[in-house]
C-alpha cells in the first residue's frame, strides 16, 4: 500500500472517531434521539475489511452499531448524520434513525436492531448474487453477542450447504450488551464454532488495520472465488458503553486502560510515523481538517436540513405507486355476484 493510501486510511479512521464523538455531543444536546450505539475503538475492523472489499459493488449489512460501516461502504457522511438528526435528507429519510441506516445506491443494505437478524438477510443477499451469476459477495458484520441467536446456527448451516458467497465478520468486543463473553458463551473463541458447519474461519487482531486488511483480503478472495462462506473473527473493544444509556459498570478500569493502549488509530498513526510517512505535525493537521469537515459539512448539513413532513407519515409503508393490475380493486365485471 502506498503512502497516500496509508494517509487516507488514517484520516478515514480519525474521521469515523470524530463522527461518533460529535454525534455523542449532539445526543447530549438532545439533537439526536432514541438509542445511539457508538463504534469508537473498533474502527480498524470496518475500515480494514471494507478497504479489502469492493464497496458499492459488494453488499454490506450489519447490526445497529452501523454509522461507520455505512460511511465506509460509501454512504455520504452528511446523510448519515442527517439521519441521526431525523431529517428528511437522511439516509433513510428520517424514518430509520441511528440503528437503521440504508443506502442501496452503494449496496449498504441496512442496520438492524434485532440481534442476529442480519445473518439470514446477508445469506439472502449472497443467494441473489449467486443466482445472478455476478462476482459480488455479501459481507455481514455482527458482534459476538449475535452468535448466540438461533439465526446464527440456522444461517451458517444453509450458507455452507448452498456454498453462498458471504463473508461473516465477527467483531468480538468481548461484551454482549453488558454481559462478558465468558458469562454468556460456552465457546469463547468464536471462529471455533464454525467447525460445526464446515465453514473455514480464523481469528485476528482487530486493532491493527494492516492485520485486518491482510486477513480480510484472503477471506474475501476465498468467498469471491466461489468456495462458499468464510467466517472471520476480529478481537476488538468498544471504548464507550453499549449505548448512551449504558453506565459501563460491568468493565474494570484496568481492562479499559489496557485496550485504550491498543487504540487502532494510535497504533496506525505510530506505525506511519515510524515509517516516515507522517509526522506529529501532519497528524495534528489531519485532525484539524477532520474537525472542520465534520463541523462545516457534516453537522451543518444535518442541522440545516428540513424535517420530514407530517403529511408524509404514511408514505413508504407499502409501494406508493403500485401497478393496479396486481393490486386492484376488483372491477365490477370481475365480481362473481
Amino acid at each position: 500500500m502506498n503512502a497516500s493510501d496509508q494517509k487516507r486510511l488514517l484520516r478515514e479512521m480519525i474521521f469515523y472517531r470524530r463522527f461518533e464523538e460529535r454525534s455523542f455531543e449532539a445526543y447530549m444536546e438532545r439533537k439526536i434521539g432514541g438509542f445511539l450505539h457508538l463504534y469508537s475503538g473498533q474502527e480498524a475492523v470496518a475500515t480494514g475489511v471494507l478497504e479489502a472489499a469492493r464497496c458499492g459493488h459488494d453488499y454490506v449489512i450489519t447490526g445497529y452499531r452501523d454509522h461507520v460501516h455505512a460511511i465506509k461502504a460509501g454512504a455520504p457522511a452528511r446523510e448519515v448524520m442527517a439521519e441521526l438528526y431525523g431529517k428528511v435528507t437522511g439516509s433513510s429519510r428520517g424514518r430509520g434513525g441511528s440503528m437503521h441506516i440504508f443506502d442501496p445506491t452503494v449496496n449498504f443494505m441496512g442496520g438492524y436492531a434485532l440481534v442476529g437478524q442480519p445473518f439470514p438477510l446477508a445469506a439472502g443477499l449472497a443467494l441473489a448474487c449467486k443466482h445472478k451469476g455476478t462476482d459480488q459477495i455479501a459481507i455481514c458484520f455482527l458482534g459476538d453477542g449475535a452468535n448466540n441467536q438461533g439465526t446464527f446456527h440456522e444461517t451458517m448451516n444453509m450458507a455452507s450447504l448452498w456454498k453462498l458467497p458471504v463473508l461473516f465478520v465477527c467483531e468480538n468486543n468481548l461484551y454482549a450488551i453488558g454481559t462478558r463473553i465468558d458469562r454468556s458463551t460456552a465457546v469463547t473463541d468464536q471462529y471455533k464454532r464454525m467447525c460445526a458447519y464446515n465453514i473455514p474461519s480464523s481469528q485476528h487482531d482487530g486493532q491493527d488495520i494492516d492485520a485486518v486488511m491482510a486477513a480480510a483480503g484472503d477471506a474475501i478472495a476465498h468467498v469471491r472465488g466461489g468456495k462458499g462462506p468464510y467466517f472471520i473473527e476480529f478481537m476488538t473493544y468498544r471504548q464507550r458503553g453499549h449505548s448512551m444509556s449504558d453506565s459501563n459498570a460491568y468493565r474494570s478500569k484496568e481492562e479499559e486502560r489496557q485496550w485504550l493502549e491498543r487504540d487502532p488509530i494510535r497504533i496506525y498513526g505510530e506505525r506511519l510515523k515510524k515509517a516516515g510517512v507522517m509526522t506529529d505535525k501532519d497528524i495534528a493537521a489531519m485532525e484539524k481538517s477532520v474537525l472542520e469537515e465534520i463541523e462545516n459539512d457534516v453537522v451543518r448539513f444535518a442541522e440545516e436540513s428540513p424535517e420530514p413532513r407530517v403529511e408524509d407519515l404514511n408514505k413508504y409503508c407499502l409501494d406508493d405507486q403500485p401497478d393496479p393490475r396486481w393490486i386492484g380493486p376488483l372491477a365490477q365485471g370481475e365480481q362473481h355476484g
Partner: peptide
C-alpha cells in the same frame, strides 16, 4: 430450493434475496 427445517432463517434468506432483486 429445498430448505432445512429453519423457518425463521430461510424466510430471512428469502427476504435478503428479495432486497437484491429476487
Amino acid at each position: 430450493i429445498d430448505t432445512p427445517i429453519s423457518e425463521n432463517s430461510y424466510t430471512g434468506i428469502g427476504i435478503g434475496a428479495s432486497m437484491a432483486g429476487l
